[in-house]
Amino acid sequence: MNDLSIPGSQSTPAIDGDWDRGILLMQGDSYPENSYQLFQQVFSWVERFLLESARLLTLELRLLYLNTSSIKAMMDIFDLLEEAYRDGKPVAVNWRYDLRNERVAELAEEFREDCTFPFAILALDPAASAS
């Protein structure tokens, strides 16, 4: 099984990696006790996908609060994507935020700063998120 599935908790985001569709979904707050342990799995999955598959990898992010070590981990993952993109591999990030909390969009922009690959910051439709 190539899929990655880590259920979310109050302090950790739900993480779902769909190998066949090339989509990694991360959703929720992130202030884990041991962020290295959590993000190492994500990092490895992304690394392996980029190595073994030539297909597009899209990160679908609906992250709200990130603690410092989670910020570092996300930057490492974006570095990984950036490196792959420079090697000609197709990657993309869609960071979706709730219109009621525009600050999340500003933070996503900070993350996007050093990335040259497609990195979209999109307002989440409140009607869609309610369902």
Binding site: Y65, L66, N67, T68, I71, K72, M75, N101, R103, V104, E106, L107, E110, F111, E113, D114
Partner: peptide
Amino acid sequence: RQLEKVARISDRYQHMMRE
């Protein structure tokens, strides 16, 4: 550079939480 960026983003997250 990464450390500086992490600190900057982290500060902004904390600010957001405070608000």
